[in-house]
Design a protein around this nucleic acid. Structure first.
Lengths: 271, 271
DNA sequence: CGACGTGGTTGCACCCTGTGCGACAGGAGC
DNA sequence: GCTCCTGTCGCACAGGGTGCAACCACGTCG
């Protein structure tokens, strides 16, 4: 019951990762708290202590105490009736400050609202973070009843138009064609797709990320020319078909250019 | 720029314990991490390690290490050029899940957007949390250029229409008139004001919270009749005067009633 | 009813982990 | 050169976090 029992974190065998795994074995309680917070998802927004403990392979008491501490700080709250926990409004407050930092968000707001009402579909702006994108602004169309997007939603890179905009940019900076010839068919197809995205300046997604959904996205550049965000339109295939998608592209490009100009002009402060 | 009273609750002279939290000596690192996160504000969204250390009366190295751990989890990120830290997108993701829990938010969205375009002013929905309210949904008017509100913004209770809606409801449940006669003039005036709010069903704010700003707010009730949220309209005094405010009230009431009905009908799931 | 299942919390002892201290590297200003 | 910032890192100590198990509350079933 020595260390092998203690940090049964399971997958911390990756200490070969470059450099910054420095905090692998430090601040264990903090990382556990963050992991606990991350177990709350849209699909399961209220979770029980035991459940989390099982998922993370931690002891019940550990999870209970960490959650109690987080509740003290308002980051989670406990349903008095069921004893289960949920994420708290303290996180919303902090996220408000975090979003205030994303200046592309403020610059985009008027444009995406105009686009949403013109196109009648949901328009979103996302930025890159590690190996996913995060929605930082969105405008729902009036007649799209259910909102399938929300601020803070995580967007996979490979299967979405928005994500591929980022992948294309990343591949572009990495001299994409430097392959060693061992690319699989899937990789090769993706590489060609990304090359196409780069040439045409937009990416399309049809029935991939969400069943029955389609979308188009274009990059937003900063003053230096690198892709800092992506703006996209999404809707159900039957309503947002090939014709509508093609019609949306020039409008997206125009909005992206306007946003970029606005970003360039307010280039200050955020050192 | 505002009084910002909630910031860090003042200075904690005694080191070690962070003062107000009940769990004094448990999970010190977690509470310190939360306190560090809370030092980031709209007014100062990027902060240096030394600065935070001074404010919280912690050692530089302690703050540095905690921030490094938080950065590993994506809750903060470090500006590589300046070395300063800012809140990260991980918080936005978590807040997205937290907001999904607030069902009054989803129920309000279509109504507040309609109201915002009809009234031409910003409409917000807020819920109560400890001794402040938090904005959980907002719709900006098309021609209100600068957005003075944002999701996650903290709203003081005493000096805003929205806040007084909550205070009135709280006082109502507490048998407000049970005073011992020692009320000051200020308290008495506030009590009368709240009583008025309760009778009329709305609260008004003029040039209090924000200079030159005015607003009206009404409560949103749940199935049990308790006030779960408030919906309000805000605008500059010269554009949103007495006439406009009075005209807005019935529309707010109607929206609040519709939202309440929707809440009642979707009463399930969140066991 | 009483024994069992579930769930969350708490006392206790151990020892790992977080911390204070100081030193270090890198800039900025003079 | 110097001084005064900044943020990070090594080290040693002890304080805080953890595992374990007992405990309490609640439902359910025999």
């Amino acid at each position: 019951m020595d260390s092998e029992r203690g940090n049964t974190d399971g997958e911390n065998a990756d200490r070969g990762t470059t450099g910054r795994d420095s905090s692998a074995n430090t601040h264990q309680s903090l990382h556990r708290a963050a992991a606990i917070l991350r177990t709350f998802t849209e699909a399961e927004p209220q979770r029980s202590v035991s459940d989390i403990a099982r998922q993370l392979d931690l002891h019940k008491s550990t999870v209970s105490r960490i959650l109690a501490a987080l509740a003290d700080d308002g980051l989670v709250w406990q349903n008095a009736r069921t004893g289960r926990y949920a994420l708290g409004l303290g996180l919303v407050e902090l996220a408000g400050v975090a979003l205030g930092q994303i200046d592309v968000r403020a610059a985009s707001m008027p444009h995406i609202e105009r686009l949403a009402s013109t196109l009648g579909e949901t328009v979103t702006v996302a930025v890159l973070r590690a190996d996913e994108a995060v929605t930082v602004a969105h405008a729902a169309s009036p007649h799209s009843v259910r909102h399938v997007s929300w601020i803070g939603r995580r967007i996979p890179l490979a299967t979405t138009a928005t994500g591929r905009v980022f992948l294309a940019a990343r591949a572009g900076t990495r001299r994409s064609g430097a392959g060693d010839g061992s690319a699989t068919d899937r990789e090769e197809r993706m590489a060609r797709e990304l090359s196409l995205v780069r040439r045409r300046g937009y990416a399309i997604e049809i029935d991939e990320f969400e069943p029955g959904g389609a979308g188009v996205a274009v990059p937003i550049h900063d003053a230096a020319g690198s892709v800092v965000a992506a703006i996209g339109v999404h809707g159900p295939i039957e309503r947002f078909g090939a014709e509508e998608r093609l019609a949306a592209i020039p409008m997206l490009h125009e909005a992206a250019r306007d946003i970029a100009l606005e970003l360039g002009s307010r280039k200050e402060a955020s050192a």
